[in-house]
Design a protein around this nucleic acid. Structure first.
Lengths: 209, 209
DNA sequence: GGGGTTCTGGACCGCTCCGTCCATGATGGG
DNA sequence: CCCATCATGGACGGAGCGGTCCAGAACCCC
């Protein structure tokens, strides 16, 4: 009954996410956005409502993805402790890719948390979810005897949230992947790991034994 | 021989620093800047050269201050290990002040590292200096027998740089001071502290013993 | 294949941006 | 006491901003 769109909405959001991640919200003009997404001025307005709305779509999408990436540590074939290490390695690899653009979630949190209430509450909720996921995984590891039962899972969760945000910032500023990997593995030493936990982690990473 | 200035250059830079820290470079207009600093359009141009130049003055000033804050752990009456803990507490308190503006250094690093070479190189140099200062302080603590001699001082230095950047990001996003304090103290567990080191730290913070 | 509906893209609008110009004001040495 | 010198601030200008309008094109259902 009508002319179909020549673009895929999810694809447009993905491209917008990349553009915003590179130059931020205020630093990305509508024209730049149109070039990056390939769609026409009016199409962007029809489909999304405007620059701010498209940004929020991209931002919310990236925030959800960032939380999901942390949530994934609660499932998997490996033991909880091994999953935490894998997650830290993954963060280091993803944010340490030299020319890779920094995470939009981190960028938006730093740029707009103080100015936009919706961004601020989204960021706060995301941090809380991440902390919860880390804490739950640590609690699982405690139940499995990999981590000292006396450890404060909530504190360690908050600690890891701060750490991965720091890694994201460093990675976006050009710190090489190897350094981020080192940071992630070094941070594991903050966990009071039991003898059983060390066995599960194996002996390939001897730095923090 | 000439009409004297009615403003103090250092004071202008301090006010500009605050304004840029709140809304970033692209998000801070010249008019906003003029209102924040109290000087006239032409005066800003005469004294600094333009928006970008004033920003760089403010940014370089803040970056130097951020490095100095870390450098300070290399001197002091307390033992090296205690100084590290004090520094982490200080970072938590400064960045966790609820309405406090985020650090311009962190904000500029996230916003502009990918776009401006001068910012990128300044940020990289600052990170490197911070890592060196942390590493040297940790080495001092090793020499004093507070930290296991087998620990990798460089890795721990990079780890703490990532952590304080993460704390800065979290603090700028509204994470409360108490949480940041918890994060800072939790991170101390990543250091392989000797029995002597624990004695020096005292027993008032029992979480990570 | 005609008609109604949606998408498209260039022209256009008012606004704000940063930077510049210039007339005026203030100063202190000669 | 006057003039050279610099700071000041209102006015201005070109450029870019985000957003809107509208005529034409593409499509699917009937």
């Amino acid at each position: 009954m009508a002319r179909p769109r020549t673009f895929d909405e999810a694809d447009v959001i993905a491209r917008a996410r990349k553009a915003f991640a590179e130059t931020g919200f205020a630093g990305t003009s509508l024209d730049t956005l149109l070039e990056a997404t390939g769609l026409a001025r009016q199409s962007l307005y029809n489909a999304f409502g405007g620059k701010k709305e498209l940004f929020m779509r991209a931002f919310l999408s990236d925030a959800a993805e960032a939380v999901d990436a942390v949530e994934s540590i609660r499932h998997g074939a490996d033991s909880p402790l091994v999953r935490i290490r894998s997650q830290l390695v993954k963060v280091a690899v993803e944010h340490g890719g030299g020319q890779a653009a920094p995470s939009l979630f981190t960028k938006a949190a730093v740029e707009l948390s103080a100015q936009d209430d919706q961004v601020a509450s989204t960021v706060a909720a995301a941090f809380e979810s991440m902390q919860t996921h880390y804490g739950a995984c640590i609690a699982d590891a405690q139940a499995a005897g990999e981590i000292d039962a006396a450890a404060d899972a909530g504190s360690l969760g908050a600690f890891f949230v701060a750490l991965i945000e720091g890694m994201s910032t460093l990675g976006g500023s050009g710190v090489p992947r190897a350094t981020l990997l080192d940071i992630g593995l070094t941070s594991m030493a903050a966990i009071p790991i039991t003898e059983l936990g060390r066995e599960h982690l194996g002996t390939d990473d001897g730095d923090w034994t």
